[in-house]
Design a protein around this nucleic acid. Structure first.
Lengths: 347, 347
DNA sequence: CTGAAAGCGCTAACAA
DNA sequence: TTGTTAGCGCTTTCAG
């Protein structure tokens, strides 16, 4: 790896080779074939540039071309399995295309989101992906006005293209899995399955709730409204909800559908304090994935979004923008809980 | 939020206000006080810019000033608790300083690392933070040649400033915690504590091993070499190691010190298959943190690096570069395992 | 207190 | 096949 020495420009190279800056530019940015520059000239330039550790000034190039090679991804937070998986896939995809991924977490703060979008726009980013924004419409309106190509991931936005997980399908499969591992003979009022967490006004939650209800109804004939506790995504709320439910039922319900990993984590904090026997009586599912889910004291079914697929599809939407905004759906994966038998003391 | 309409420049604003571009520039970038521009003029400019949704072209500014407002963070992967915590703290810190964080994962691939450093340099990033790089020396040499301020995080690099966790201290405290929760009366040869994972040739591992040995010696008089199984960080190796150890001892050892989260996860995959009673006989510690650690079937002490502190300290090192490269150390946190009593069936 | 003008490093017509 | 030249949008002397 050659060391870059001083500030070096294409003019320096041009001088050393005895040619013009535009020739150097062409040789270095790959347009030299199209510009019919002698292969030998180009090679000499490239070789020299290489050995003196020259590197283009991308800000200058970007200023000139009104592009930048930067692609943005906005998400709520980094320390979350799903979003970090997404970051990982996004990074791979962007780098494979020779772009620089700029991933920014905005803490679910609409103001921070807009600020970030503006900042990214000011750098002339070439495209923007948005995952789990608090104010998607505003973002979309802004991008549209600025003619910035953008796609939403894991979140539908009216008027913009989005690629989201098939939440209803996932919820149905998760619910089915929970039903299939219900422990036998749990007496009322503890014999039902409850969905905890999420916000019914949000598209994502509403689809999951719909899937949950549909599957419950398919198996039990009906689904009581009380079985859907859409208390939001805040861990404190989830904790309060499970506590209240526990008190009300006089114990754990037969099944629990945690509507997100945060909610699940909050529930676990409560569950883990309970005696082993009680813990083993509940059939759990979580609409999100964490590898530790397989290693917990309480077996849990998990739904995992296909992050790679989401990113790829989003890029396709970006590459070939449809006439009208499109909502593409990707089916998630079900990670069934390890068999319960293995959890019982063997001796 | 005003919508940006067309391409707008300071020239447009200047014309509308009836002033010059340089005045507009000054008004908009905050240097107007220093340039003694009438407050009223500045305000009018700022107001107009705001209402027409103008935003500076940062590439142009960057080209002119040879800076960019971008700060880089290179790390091995996103989907890892520590690194995503780091990303989170880094984002907060950078945004608080009005910078744009560019966080790029390079999959522990030295080539990808260098490529990324070069790309970032080509954008005139203002500073670079490097965490867990595969080829730190090469990166540092490159940055030095390019006069790019850089600091290593969680990894010492000779010739460059670094801020790392006090691994020896952490290992001692973790070992002590393991000792304190040893189950009574475990017969030889199963009565000892083993460290599993890591690579003794790496600085980080070697400090942890030193801490482990020191604490073991302090309590038991001596530490057998066999108690340190530095089999690397690969999960497969860790799995093979615990399996071999189990066979050799005819059961689990009294205590286990997992040298990283990956190793811990691998160990868990083995442990979780064991009968409950055996599981409850081992005292475990992990030199890394995961919130699920508190919720596992087997109680585990965890060491958590103070990511916020690491980032802050790294920034301080960047703000006031010491004469000579410095190695600053930050003490980690100990998350003791939940009391074992709570884990025993209550009824 | 403000304006004119040069130039950051590069690309892209247009000439040659 | 290559060179000349005019900017991209901004900051920054230097003059006023």
């Amino acid at each position: 790896m050659p060391k870059p020495t001083q500030k070096q420009t294409i003019y320096d190279i041009a001088q050393q080779i005895g040619t013009s800056p535009s020739t150097v530019s062409a040789a270095l940015n790959g347009t030299w074939k199209a510009r019919r520059i002698k292969a030998e000239t180009a090679e000499r330039i490239i070789a020299l540039a290489g050995q003196m550790g020259y590197s283009v000034n991308l800000q200058a190039r970007g200023l000139r071309t009104a592009r930048s090679g930067l692609v943005g991804l906005i998400l709520p937070e980094h320390n979350n399995r799903f979003f970090s998986d997404l970051s990982q896939s996004f990074t791979l995809e962007a780098r494979a295309r020779g772009q620089i991924p700029v991933i920014i977490a905005t803490q679910r703060d609409p103001k921070a989101e807009m600020q970030t979008v503006q900042d990214l726009l000011a750098y002339s980013i070439d495209a923007l992906f948005v995952a789990g924004a608090a104010g998607p419409q505003q973002i979309s309106a802004f991008c549209q006005a600025a003619e910035l190509p953008h796609v939403f991931i894991d979140q539908p936005c009216p008027g913009a293209s989005s690629v989201i997980t098939d939440n209803e399908d996932g919820a149905r499969r998760l619910t089915r899995a929970i039903i299939e591992t219900l422990q036998p003979a749990i007496a009322p009022p503890r014999d039902r399955i409850y969905l905890i967490g999420g916000d019914g006004r949000l598209h994502v939650s509403s689809r999951r709730i719909a899937g949950f209800r549909a599957e419950i109804e398919a198996h039990f004939g009906q689904c009581d409204d009380a079985q859907v506790i859409a208390c939001g995504y805040a861990p404190e709320m989830a904790l309060a909800s499970i506590r209240a439910l526990y008190d009300q039922l006089g114990g754990l319900p037969a099944g629990i559908f945690a509507n997100s990993i945060n909610v699940f984590e909050a529930l676990l904090r409560f569950l883990v304090e309970l005696p082993e026997a009680e813990l083993q009586s509940v059939s759990m599912g979580c609409f999100d994935y964490d590898p530790y889910g397989e290693l917990l004291r309480v077996p849990v079914h998990m739904i995992r979004q296909r992050h790679r697929q989401l990113v790829r599809t989003a890029y396709e939407l970006m590459d070939q923008p449809p006439e009208h905004p499109e909502l593409v759906t990707v089916k998630p994966e079900l990670y069934p809980a390890p068999a319960r038998a293995a959890r019982v003391p063997a001796q």
